[in-house]
């Protein structure tokens, strides 16, 4: 059984904890982080917008790519430490939601956190990326609250 845990800045600890709590100790666990291509891309583009400023070695996008790789590695290491079990770290680049779906090919479970408005139960507790992944994932999905969930009283009244 292979479980993919999607690690995202800000919400990952709940996913790691859920993976530990809900899977047998000998489960093969994959910690997945995706660096969005558009972040270094925006810096590349802004530099290109400075028409004629030459010096490709000054391109901040390249520095961002290196920084992003370093920070992803750090994040995945923290996640592995918190998990406290053998695991595999996988780092991908590109469109986040599509990369996550692609990484779940052949997996038995995907663990991810809500990434939308979490002040009350629904209706927008999923952001665009998580919504896409839940919608398209080819495997079962374990969707967790990054922090203790809001009480039932916060549920919007029926219309």
């Amino acid at each position: 059984m292979a479980v993919v845990v999607w690690i995202v800045e800000g919400t990952w600890p709940a996913c790691v904890d859920a993976a530990r709590a809900h899977t047998p100790a000998d489960t093969e666990i994959v910690l997945l982080h995706v660096t969005p291509a558009e972040v270094p891309g925006a810096a590349h583009g802004a530099f290109a917008g400075l028409l004629g400023r030459g010096h490709p070695e000054r391109d901040p996008g390249t520095r961002l790519e290196n920084l992003a790789a370093a920070s992803a590695e750090q994040l995945l290491r923290s996640a592995a430490d918190r998990l406290g079990r053998p695991s595999t770290a996988v780092e991908r680049n590109g469109r986040v939601e599509r990369e996550v779906v692609a990484a779940t090919a052949g997996a038995d479970l995907l663990v991810l956190a809500r990434d939308g408005d979490r002040t009350h139960l629904g209706p927008r507790s999923l952001g665009p990326a998580a919504r896409f992944v839940v919608d398209h994932a080819p495997c079962p999905v374990l969707l967790v609250w990054p922090e203790p969930s809001p009480g039932l009283a916060t549920m919007p009244p029926p219309r």
């Binding site: 800045e9 800000g10 558009e38 972040v39 925006a42 810096a43 901040p60 992003a68 920070s71 750090q74």
Partner: peptide, 24 residues
């Protein structure tokens, strides 16, 4: 563009904050 953007990204990464809004 050249000098502040990488610093902002590094700061966000160090804090564990999603970098996209800050880089944009």
């Amino acid at each position: 563009v050249v000098l502040l953007t990488p610093v902002v990204f590094a700061t966000a990464a160090r804090l564990g904050v999603r970098p996209k809004p800050h880089v944009y």
